[in-house]
Design a protein around this nucleic acid. Sequence first.
DNA 1: CCGCTAACTTGACACTGTCAAGACCGGGGC
DNA 2: GCCCCGGTCTTGACAGTGTCAAGTTAGCGG
Lengths: 202, 202
Amino acid sequence: MVFDTVKIRATVALVTDRYHHGDLRRALIDAAVASIAESGPSALSLRAVAKLAGVSHAAPAHHFGDKAGLLTAVAAEGYDRFADALERAWKATGDFVEVGIAYVRFAIDNKAYFETMFRPELLHEDDPDLQRAEARSNAALVRGAGEQRADAEFNPEALGAWSLVHGFAGLLMGGNFPPAVVADPEGALREIAKRVRFGKPE
Amino acid sequence: MVFDTVKIRATVALVTDRYHHGDLRRALIDAAVASIAESGPSALSLRAVAKLAGVSHAAPAHHFGDKAGLLTAVAAEGYDRFADALERAWKATGDFVEVGIAYVRFAIDNKAYFETMFRPELLHEDDPDLQRAEARSNAALVRGAGEQRADAEFNPEALGAWSLVHGFAGLLMGGNFPPAVVADPEGALREIAKRVRFGKPE
DNA sequence: CCGCTAACTTGACACTGTCAAGACCGGGGC
DNA sequence: GCCCCGGTCTTGACAGTGTCAAGTTAGCGG
């Protein structure tokens, strides 16, 4: 265990008098994220998470119902942070490429969240919190991608840009790219952006 | 269990006199693929695979060493079939877009293989068979993507095209696309391809 | 026909998620 | 100020998992 158990338990201690054991929900999510960062979402163990947070082995299941429930909570929080990051990039620069950069930057900096978000078979996809957060990040994405009306059923340019950026992030994190790209992903993506043009067929 | 147990056991029966129980390795991989197609690679159970193939619970581990070993065998076979599909598309049409279409078509038609291939945390990445098959599919990909020299360390156009097509496949299978795209993914991708141009910055 | 070496089985172990039942404790009504 | 109620968490149990060591079986070369 390389986790910072002390730190995670500290977040509990901070609010320890709110009820029985403080904001356990928060502590469990933090522990889960730490664990996912180490060995991926599919290897997550509820009992390990419980030990990390210093509670009994069944506490996580009680709070989230399920292992999938805990992962769903992580994913929902991930989508929220993701939406924040995209909106921030769009507001700061107004540049569509910068939103793409923010996309892969988020994937790199928040590996645990990102890996959990795009693994539907591990989640409760019907969870309202998850759906709300997902919708928020989708909205932020199309706003940044197209500045066209967001209600477009099928916008090829936006879908293409989204695919490109999402695929880039996925391949990068999967270790499928050459070392030069891994060393400076942001630079590589800018290079690609310079070489790609979207628009009506000639 | 919705699997076609009879059929899978039949593949065993076909070669049943080769040694103890026929080509068990083959039967186990088939069973694994069937199981993965149902519930994803992370939910794979060695014992379920064994039951499907009609052997004892420890037989899979004996053949593949590990759960990761079995998944690695599946991934390696997947990469080989993938390389075949890409090469076939390239030879048949010589069209770079058609290779992209073949890419996502493979993802759709061979969901189980595709999902396993791009989950490094579940595999033995140092396996020589896996690496060979992976290299083969990479070669097929750059040959189709750029027709430039394949030794290029970092080819922005090819990387961009790869990212786009890979991201499209991933988002499609993750259920992140609108219904119109899900209904006709091939058409959607062609639409995108018409709107995207790669080349030197103007 | 005999033994040797592989392929496979058996049995055990520690670990997992999930569930029912109980223990604990803080806050609201008397 | 006391008590009881309800939610928070724990305890104990269960079936299922991957993995390993030891045993059994069967085919092949002598």
